[in-house]
Design a binder for these strands. Structure first.
Lengths: 194, 194
DNA sequence: ATTTTATAGTATCGAGTCGCTACTATTAGA
DNA sequence: TCTAATAGTAGCGACTCGATACTATAAAAT
């Protein structure tokens, strides 16, 4: 920041500089920053969210740009693309084995390493504070939060309401959700506690 | 992050996403992200550090790229360039009035705004934690810290050593430093406490 | 002094990025 | 069945950024 230089300004500055550092590290491994982030996203998104359109929303880019990113990842053999049999306009994306392997060399690990040198309290504080800022800005810009199913207002936990057991459910898309599904991120997610 | 997903991993992830958000906001105002960061840097760097080379180090880019950035800012009338009369290879940079005015519309203010919604403790924690991570990574990558003079090991406070009064001094470059100078960032800075 | 080497910066080129505007294919609605 | 609306891709063009090569000046070596 340039002005008042209070703590808040310094935080903005630090985020900016760390972001730049991330980007420069992310040139490694034959991928560019957008491709790294796409790869990470696809590893953690649920099946309704592994599409070029959802990726575009996540990256804050256009569909065209996201499409190019996906094509590049497919050329490198890290991502698999197939048409959805139910809606034949849609494309379903997924990581290949090579894609998952590649993620083990994620440059972001270096950042996680640096973070883990902090005390546990400091880590929790950082995580909470950054998450809060991100949430605020996303709301402010009308972006989706991309949280996980189990924190979503459309999430119906197993045993709730009528059905006594069976899987959890998404009452927006009206589908069953496995335990694993519930921990993945989703385009449609809306924070429960609001 | 993709794996263990501990708090540390989540922090890396958040930094990445916030960084991307910064970048997308920084397209505003007719400048690109690198230009915004250069403008901010030049507003806060001392006179030994307002050069294309120092800027390149700060941005983590090459001299060529930094040179282009500076040229672009000069074309827009935000930065002034002049040759140093003492070392005629060197170029000294500075903001114009328009440059300072432009900084008032810094998109990073939005982030500072979001940060200032946090409690004072949370802000201090964030600032300290992020600063720590940045410092670690800079050391690890052999980058300069770009701190301010008064925290530098070459800083000699007024009244120290022989000279009883007069200005502070930089004992690396052997020059006088005003009070204002001492709060500016410097390429040559090395943290005092190590 | 003169030569050599180092330093500061710029010019230029090419690969790649990204937003934008079409455009196709498929589905949903009137 | 005709008309939107939706998911995605193609291709263009402005721009970015790193790498290489180059000029000008300064410092070091002989």
């Amino acid at each position: 920041m340039t002005d008042g230089d209070g703590t808040a300004g310094r935080i903005g500055d630090l985020i900016d500089r760390l972001g730049r550092l991330v980007r420069s590290q992310e040139q490694a491994g034959g991928l560019n920053p957008a491709q790294w982030e796409a790869l990470r996203y696809l590893a953690r998104a649920n099946r309704f969210s592994r599409s070029p359109g959802a990726l575009a929303e996540f990256l804050g880019s256009t569909k065209g740009t996201a499409s190019q990113t996906v094509l590049a990842l497919e050329r490198k053999g890290l991502v698999r693309r197939e048409r959805d049999p139910d809606d034949r306009r849609a494309v379903r994306l997924g990581l290949t084995g090579a894609g998952r392997t590649h993620l083990r060399r994620d440059p972001l690990r270096e950042f996680a390493g640096a973070a883990s040198a902090l005390t546990k309290e400091a880590q929790n504080g950082l995580s909470a504070g950054l998450g809060d800022i991100l949430g605020q800005l996303q709301r402010h810009n009308g972006r989706r939060p991309f949280g996980t199913c189990q924190h979503c207002r459309f999430f119906q936990r197993r045993g709730a309401a009528k059905q006594s057991d069976g899987p959890h459910r998404c009452i927006l898309l009206d589908v069953a959700l496995s335990e694993a599904d519930s921990g993945l991120i989703c385009v449609e997610q809306e924070e429960a506690s609001a």
